[in-house]
Each structure stands twice: as C-alpha cells, then as structure tokens.
Nucleic acid binder design. Structure first.
Length: 645
RNA sequence: GCCACUGUAGCUCAGGGGUAGAGCACUCGAUUCGUAAUCGAGCGGUCGUCGGUUCAAAUCCGACCAGUGGCUCCA
C-alpha cells in the first residue's frame, strides 16, 4: 500500500529496492530507505510483510538516523584501513550524529581524527554498496573471529536458528541489524567532532574503548547550521555567562563548590525567596542539622549503599570517621516526624527544607553548576496514606510544572522503575510502581519509561530540562518510598485508633538551586526577566551636569524597591551603554538635559538591539511599570514602551 | 574514578629550548560627550604545582592539581 492509496503485490522476500524501482527509476536514486508499517528498513533487506509502504528520501527526518548509522560504518571502514589492529565495538546513530567504539593499543589523537576524516572521504568517493547478508550464529562467528568484542556480542544469540545480519561496505564487514543507505557515496556532509573514552558495554569494570563522535547531514547547509548551533550554544554556557555577568566562580581549593559573588548571591537569594513564597501555604518549612553520626545512615541504608558519596568527618574523641555531612535530607525529616505521634487527619504532611547538602562526586563528574559537591535542594518529604497517593502525585506534579511555567521552562517526564541495587522486597516494589504509575497516568501527561532507573528505595517520576548543549538535567523529582517508613518505623494513628504505616514521597522542584540557576542562565542566555537580575535599572546621565538629577532618580527607584544603580563615570555615553548591554541590564535610563527638565528618562530596553529608539517616559510612570513587572514576575520587558497611558 | 585534550596578566588569547607579548579590564591624566568600547600614560605574569633532562625549560619528559569533552555515576 503506497501513500497515494495504490497497492503493489509482491512475493515475500522481494527487495524494497525492486518495489521502489517499479514506482520510478528516479525515485530509486533518491531513496534512502523505506518505511513499512512505520518500521524503517533499508532497500536491501527482503520484505517479510506487507503494509503501508513509504519511500524515505533525504527530506524525511527518519532517514537521518539511517544516514548517521551508515556514517558510523564509514568511520569504522576508515579506521580499519589506517589502524588495522583496531577491534570494533558498537557504532550507532545518536541525536545529531553518530559514534563508533574501538579497542586499540594506543588511544587516538586529534591528528588521527583528521586522518580518519580524510580517509572517510575516500571511502565515500569509492561508493561501496552496503551489502546485507543473513547468516546463522555459527557462520557469523567465523566472520568475526578476529573481533573479540563482536564475538562477545554474538554470545547473546543462544538460539542456533537465529538469523543474524551482517553488512559489508567494501573492505569492512560489521555485525549489524541495519538499516543502511544504499552505498557509502550517500554520505556527503559530515565531520568528526571528538574522541572520548567509553567503557565496553557501559560497564566501568570492563576495558575502556576509544569512542569517536561525529555528525552527518544530508545537506551542506544543515551541517553548517549544526556547527553554528554548537558555537551559539557555547555562548549561552552558564559557566561562561557566570563569569561574564560576575555571578559565581570556582576555585581549585574547593572543586565542585561555587563561590557566589555579590551579584550572584542576589539572584540565588531571590530564587530561594520565590521558591519559599510559592510553598508557604501548603508546605511546612523546617531546618535540620548538617552533621550526623553514622547511626542515622545505618538506619536509613545510606551507610551501605551511599557511603562512597558521603563526606566523612573525623570524630576527635573516637578517632573514627563516623560522622558525616548529610548528602540528603530525608532521614533528618523522618527524625522530626518521629518526634510526635501523628493523626491521619494531619496527612498529607509536607516538610520542606533548603538546607545545604554535600555529596562527594567523582572528580570527572563535576561540571559547572550542574554537577557540584555542595548544593541546596528545595527538598520536600510528604507523609501520606496510601489511598492519598494519586491525589498527592497530581498535586505535586501541578505544583512542579506550574513553577517551571513561571520561568517559561518546559520539562519532559520520565517514569523510573526498580534498580538492581535496591532495598525492600519485590512485593513492596510492585505496589509502589503500580501506585505511582497509576497516579502518573491519571494526570494524562506523556512520559518516557526508564526501567531500572529508580532510586534505591523506590520508583520515581523525574522532570528533565535540557541545557544549551542539549544535555538533559534532572531538575524536579517525585519519588515514592515504602521502604523508609518501614526502616524508620513511621506511623500515624488512623480513624480506627490503630497504628498505620504512612507512605513517603520525596519531592524536589528545582533539583538544586545551583543546577536550576545554571539552567535559567542558559534558558535566558543570561538575560533574566526583570525581577531576577542583580541590577534591574542603570541610570546614565549624559554629562556631569545631569549627574545630581540622575542620582536623585536612582534614589527614587531604590526607594521603590528597584535594584537601580548610577553610572556617571567619565566615559562616553556610547561606552556606558555598551557596558550596560554587556551585563544584560534590563533597562538603561539615559538622563540628558531634556529629560532632566521634564522629570523623564529615555529608556533603553534590553534586547531591542543596537540603534533602538529610546523611549522617553516620566520617572514615576517608569517606576510604576518596572514595579508591576517585578511584582508579576513578567517574563518580557515592556516598561520602556512609549505608549501614553 | 576511567580515556583524551587543555592550563601563559583579572578576562580572551598569541608565542613555543636563549631578555614574557597583545587587546580588554584595572589605576592615573585628558575629555563632559544624546545611544552598543574617546585618547594617552601606567600597573599587572617565578607561563597551574612539584620534580627530571639540558650550559640554558614557559617551551621537552614525568607525577600531581584543576578545567573541558565523553564514559561510569548523578540533584
């Protein structure tokens, strides 16, 4: 069945290429692959079933994955030519590109990368067809006798009747499911990007392979756009903007912990305040200690499962390292819950805290503000009855998504189930997963399934936001926990006057303020909405003559609760405008003779671009508008508008 | 923690066995300016740290520290 409704009847085993040829010879030249009932396959894999048949050309987004997968093979072909000793691992297509893993005696250098790319261009010029063959496991093993990694992969095929496919392009053969483009000549616009180490099969106990990353596109402009996008993303990088906007810094004396400048601290505190404000009504804020004896962690299970990540402190009296900085808040919240008897009437009970946490992250895992050793979460623990789970999850989800929305952020949802390393019995996990999933589905939102990705004490829903480089970061989370109430013997008194076991939900919204700020910096490219930046308004007198008037205007703004400052330096207006713009100040108010006489300011709005026509607004009116923007936490800047009100 | 790369002035970077460089920032002076960097002068670095090779090391080699990109882990 073709998209136009026509049908072709072919025998099973017919090659898609033949079907495409029957439609048109020209189409065959443009075809990259075909889609049969939504499944993508290449032109040289025999058809096994009929169905909706669609020819994929360079215009179809699904074809890109096929191209990139083939690009990985071309890369391997080139590497094998220049480094015949290289053993091949896996080489899939990924978002925006592809990679291939190799096991080699000595790692690749950047020079090698250039040589491989040049060799790839030769392989492309040679236009080797991708030839698919289907063999049994025994024959397959013969073909890869010299490739131990491929042999290990073949160990997974235990059925002797299994059909295994191989693809050959010129001198290179790979164990591969496909699909592929018809020949290596289809690959035109590509670039190798970098090398990296990667554990064989993602297992840190196995040997480290050398991975080469690359990108490939159908059109030259697409490749150029992609490379341009990478450059632009770097300009948004929160580490760079953090320095340029003078928000925070890092120092080798405390790797993984941020030093917040005066400006950065202002932003940080504003976010904490905002977060606190949104939770004032429905959550109870508490504070608990930072240091604990190991007894608490033994009770919670962290001592066994999480000790590697905890900073241990020497107890001078015992001479033992049996005190630790808390890496999580949960156990301390349970302590406070345990201090009283609770009625079913109190539930759900929500404890929230902003305490500082420390986690001893691996040095190689640290990254700017997104992965640090010291941070604060807006961490909440809800104690509730089992029958309240669905309502509570909905409440928390609405809260989290509403919070993101107020920043213009959107998150993707993940449902993560039991990991291998876990506490609690399977029956408990069955109940927890079913309960959380039901609550999640009741909200009707889309989500991705992440099997085995749950916390060691329970399944969770994660809220991910991506940074400017496309890396996903977990911000919010909702984690269901049946284990902790057991371990800590938590209880409440029910309607029946008997003791019952509550359920605990762990919840974070920002993930951590550190990570959240990183995401916000990149999301706004450093240009925060009016309520958030350290400096909201900068007032610039044109000459010394207006300096006293400008100073008085700043005073009025500050009294109105606006973070305004004066720039009356002996520099040209041009210079001061440029600097204010570089610091991404929302408004720059110029005061010249005309404005001074009329009690006005000429407002330059951030983002309006060079050569904008500054708007004269009365000082009182401008203050009123900025205040309104701050109070509503508006995401756009409009206080500079000239409209007469 | 593992693999690769990087580390030169506060920032961005050039230099690459033989006297340490630029622009910006900063300080001072001049300029008082109508919208995206005014001119001049000055200050500022034992070239990440420690060791080795060498007549001589910022430069070559090694270890360590930190950062970057990945892997593993993870808010």
């Amino acid at each position: 069945m073709l998209p136009d409704g026509a049908t072709r009847h072919v025998a099973p085993g017919t090659l898609p290429a033949d079907v495409v040829r029957s439609i048109g010879e020209r189409l065959l030249g443009a075809a990259v692959a075909v889609s049969v009932d939504g499944e993508i396959q290449d032109l040289m894999t025999p058809l096994r079933k009929g169905g909706a048949f669609r020819v994929l050309t360079e215009r179809d987004p699904e074809a890109l994955g096929v191209l990139r997968h083939s690009a990985a093979h071309v890369l391997a072909t080139a590497v094998r030519r220049l480094r015949p000793d290289a053993k091949i691992g896996f080489g899939p297509a990924i978002d925006d590109g592809f990679y291939y893993d190799f096991e080699v005696a000595s790692p690749f250098t950047p020079d090698d990368l250039a040589a491989f790319e040049a060799e790839m261009r030769k392989v492309v010029a040679e236009k080797y067809p991708f030839v698919r063959e289907e063999v049994g496991p025994v024959e397959a093993r013969k073909r890869f006798v010299d490739d131990p990694l491929k042999l290990e992969r073949l160990d997974d095929f235990t059925d002797p009747n299994e059909i295994i496919s191989t693809y050959t392009d010129g001198p290179f053969i790979d164990l591969c499911r496909g699909p592929h483009v018809p020949d290596t000549g289809r690959l035109k616009h590509f670039k190798l990007l970098n090398t990296a180490g990667a554990y064989w099969r993602g297992d840190e106990k196995r040997q480290m392979l050398q991975r080469i990353y690359g990108t490939a596109w159908f059109k030259k402009e697409e490749l150029e756009q992609y490379l341009y996008r990478l450059e632009e993303a770097k300009k948004r990088d929160h580490r760079r903007l953090g320095r340029e906007l003078d928000l925070f810094m890092f120092h080798p004396f405390s790797p993984g912990s941020a030093f917040w400048t005066e400006r950065g601290t202002t932003v940080y505190n504003l976010l904490v305040e905002y977060c606190r404000e949104r939770q004032r009504r429905d959550f109870a804020e508490i504070r608990t200690p930072l240091l604990y004896n190991k007894g608490l962690w033994e009770l919670s299970g962290h001592w066994g499962k999480y000790k590697e990540n905890m900073f241990l402190v020497l107890d001078n009296e015992t001479g033992e390292h049996d005190i630790s900085l808390k890496p999580m808040n949960c156990p301390s919240h349970y302590m406070l819950y345990l201090a009283k008897r609770h009625s079913y009437r109190e539930l759900p009970m929500r404890y929230v805290t902003f305490d500082v946490l420390h986690r001893n992250e691996l040095t190689g895992a640290l990254s700017g503000l997104t992965r640090v050793r010291q941070f604060s979460q807006d961490d909440c623990h809800v104690f509730l009855r089992e029958d309240q789970i669905a309502d509570e999850v909905k409440f928390l989800m609405d809260f989290i998504l509403g919070y993101y929305e107020s920043f213009g952020l959107t998150a993707t949802l993940k449902f993560a189930t039991r990991p291998e390393q876990r506490i609690g019995e399977d029956a408990m996990w069955d109940r927890a997963e079913a309960g959380l999933r039901a609550a999640l589905e009741a909200t009707g939102r889309e989500y991705a399934l992440k099997p085995g990705d749950g916390a060691f004490y329970g399944p969770k829903i994660d809220f991910d936001v991506t940074d400017s480089l496309g890396r996903a970061w977990q911000l919010g989370t909702i984690q269901l926990d049946y284990a902790a109430p057991e371990r800590f013997d938590l209880s409440y008194v029910g309607e029946d006057n008997a003791e019952h076991r509550p359920v605990v939900i762990h919840r974070a919204v920002s993930g951590s303020f550190e990570r959240f700020i990183a995401i916000l910096i990149e999301h706004f490219a450093g240009a925060f909405p009016t309520w958030l930046p350290p400096e909201q308004v900068r007032v610039l007198p044109i000459s010394e003559e207006q300096a006293p008037v400008a100073e008085a205007i700043v005073e009025r703004m500050v009294n109105a609760g606006i973070r305004a400052s004066l720039d009356a330096r002996s520099e040209t207006l041009k210079y001061r405008i440029a600097e204010g713009a570089r610091m991404k100040t929302p408004y720059m108010c110029v005061v010249g003779r005309r404005e001074a006489e009329a009690d006005q300011v000429a407002v330059n709005t951030r983002g309006a671009g060079e050569g904008q026509k500054p708007a004269p607004v009365s000082v009182d009116e401008f203050i009123r508008r900025v205040r309104a923007e701050i109070d509503t936490r508006a995401l756009t800047l409009s206080a500079g508008a000239t409209a007469t009100l």
